[in-house]
């Protein structure tokens, strides 16, 4: 098992062993092994249809695992229902944001805390999200469907933060956003990580993701073909040609 993690003493928060996932006969994830230590910022990069979303859906229990095992904080969650996985602390910002369009910004955030019971904590965390994304505070009474793409991405991240994540999964948060917004979102991801949130970032935008990640995995047609510290991946010639375009 590679131990390039900067803090080798940190506990392994998520451990995936031999995970496979199918759509009918089509294998979308094949025998994937990966692990994330507490406090880490890990990127999984891969092209169109590599299986990134399927992997995250399987981790969150939205899609069944056909083989293998997912352990989170020492517990086997391979077959747990999604709402229990969320309660355990894995929160996902899904591909395409999927904000609740007919509900207000405020309601979207409140629903993010659906499993939280501590009203005080919810209030404080909501204020933190508003501090992170002031535009959301301004639009708190607006319907989520009327927000711009970038604002919806912020809302989706805020909603996930209200789930009190121990591990935050982000599925292509840069998708469809202008470069300036991508920068803004990635800045926030780094900030969240520095505040102690463990992050698994999945991206087609390999360069941006590997720049902020500590470690990266390369996913190709359902297989993890390489893992290394992000700086190493950024310098790797073959990876530069395949994913970074220079």
């Amino acid at each position: 098992m590679p131990s390039e993690s900067p803090a080798p003493a940190a506990e392994i928060l998520l451990e995936v062993v031999g995970l496979s996932s199918y759509y009918g006969p089509v294998c979308a994830i094949q025998q994937a092994d990966l692990h994330i230590r507490a406090g880490d910022l890990v990127a999984i990069v891969g092209g169109n249809g590599a299986g990134k979303t399927t992997l995250l859906h399987t981790l969150s229990g939205l899609h069944p695992a056909s083989a293998g095992c997912i352990r989170f904080a020492g517990k086997d969650i391979t077959r747990a229902a999604t709402h229990r996985i969320v309660a355990a602390g894995i929160c996902q910002v899904p591909e395409g944001r999927l904000v609740f369009a007919p509900l207000s910004v405020e309601d979207n955030l409140r629903l993010g805390a659906f499993r939280q019971r501590d009203q005080d904590w919810i209030r404080r965390q909501t204020q933190q999200v508003y501090a992170l994304f002031p535009i959301l505070a301004e639009r708190r009474h607006q319907l989520a469907g009327t927000l711009s793409g970038g604002q919806q991405q912020m809302l989706a991240i805020g909603r996930a933060l209200l789930g009190h994540p121990r591990l935050l999964l982000l599925d292509e948060p840069s998708m469809g956003l202008a470069p300036l917004l991508v920068e803004e979102i990635f800045r926030v991801i780094v900030e969240l990580n520095s505040q102690g949130v463990t992050i698994l970032l999945v991206e087609q935008n390999a360069r941006a993701a590997l720049r902020i990640a500590k470690r990266g995995y390369i996913l190709e047609t359902g297989r993890i073909v390489k893992t290394a510290p992000a700086t190493e991946l950024l310098a790797d010639d073959a990876i530069r040609r395949a994913y970074l375009g220079y």
């Binding site: 969150s60 999604t82 996902q92 369009a101 509900l103 629903l111 499993r115």
Partner: peptide, 22 residues
């Protein structure tokens, strides 16, 4: 909150599950 959760489910089931709604 439960009413809004029901609306959330009808709008997008996967997203509703991802905020922890059963």
């Amino acid at each position: 909150l439960i009413g809004k959760a029901l609306l959330a489910c009808s709008f997008n089931r996967a997203a509703a599950q991802l905020v922890g709604i059963n």
